[in-house]
Each structure stands twice: as C-alpha cells, then as structure tokens.
Amino acid sequence: MSVAEYFRTMDYGPAPEDDQPVRAWLAQHEAAFGHFIDGAWRESGDGARFEVRAPATGETLAAVAQGGAADVA
C-alpha cells in the first residue's frame, strides 16, 4: 500500500492532547497570577490585570498582573 493510500483510508480520532490537566492547574491557582519578583508572587503596583484568552474559543483562561514602570523598578 502506498503512503497516499494510507492517508485516504486513515480513520481520524480525537487528538491525544487534553486540556483538562491545564484547566485543573489553573483552577488550583484560581486562574489569577501576579508577578514573580524577588522570589515571591506579587500584584502589580497599581493592581491592573489583563485577561489571557484561549485563541480557539476566546474563552478567558486566567487574569494576570499588568506590569508597569513601578513594577520594573
């Protein structure tokens, strides 16, 4: 059988990737993250955050600290 014939007869199943472990990890951290500065997690100086979204669905996955000049300093 040729490669082309294999492709024509292949059954497609679900992708082996599963997002459940990642979703569980996000839930464990309440889907909220700060900056890791000087060995500790910290909020941004002004409390600003932005949402991280799944590119395929637009679903909000987490909220993370939005850094500013004060956070860098």
Rank of each mutant, 00 (worst) to 15 (best):
G34K: 00
G47P: 01
R8P: 00
A4H: 08
F36R: 04
H35D: 03
I37H: 08
D71P: 04
V72F: 14
T60V: 15
G45A: 14
A65K: 03
V72G: 12
E51P: 11
R49P: 06
A40N: 07
A15H: 14
R53H: 11
P21A: 02
R49S: 03
I37E: 07
H35N: 05
G39V: 00
A27W: 04
R53P: 07
T60L: 13
W25I: 02
V64T: 11
Q20M: 10
R53Q: 07
H29Y: 04
F7W: 13
R53C: 13
Y6L: 15
A70T: 14
I37S: 06
I37R: 13
R42E: 08
M10D: 08
S2D: 09
A70K: 15
P16W: 03
E5M: 06
H35W: 03
R23D: 12
G45W: 01
A27C: 01
H29I: 01
D38I: 00
A27E: 11
H35P: 04
Y6D: 14
V3D: 14
A32V: 11
D38P: 00
G68E: 10
A69W: 12
D11M: 09
A73V: 12
W25V: 03
H35G: 01
D19E: 15
A40Q: 11
E30Y: 00
E30L: 03
P21S: 01
R49I: 04
D11K: 15
A63W: 15
G45K: 07
G58F: 06
M10V: 15
G67Y: 08
M1A: 12
T57W: 05
G67N: 06
H29C: 09
L61I: 07
T9W: 05
L61S: 04
G39A: 07
W41S: 01
A63G: 13
G67Q: 08
R53A: 09
W25T: 03
G34P: 03
P55Y: 10
A4Q: 14
G45F: 08
A48D: 09
V22K: 06
A40C: 06
M1F: 10
P21V: 01
S44K: 05
E5D: 15
T57E: 10
E17K: 07
P14W: 03
G39E: 02
F7G: 06
A4N: 12
V64I: 14
G39Y: 04
L61V: 05
A24W: 00
E43Y: 03
L26Q: 02
G68I: 10
A48E: 12
W25F: 11
Y12S: 13
L26T: 00
G34D: 04
F7L: 13
Q28Y: 04
L61R: 00
A65Y: 07
R53G: 07
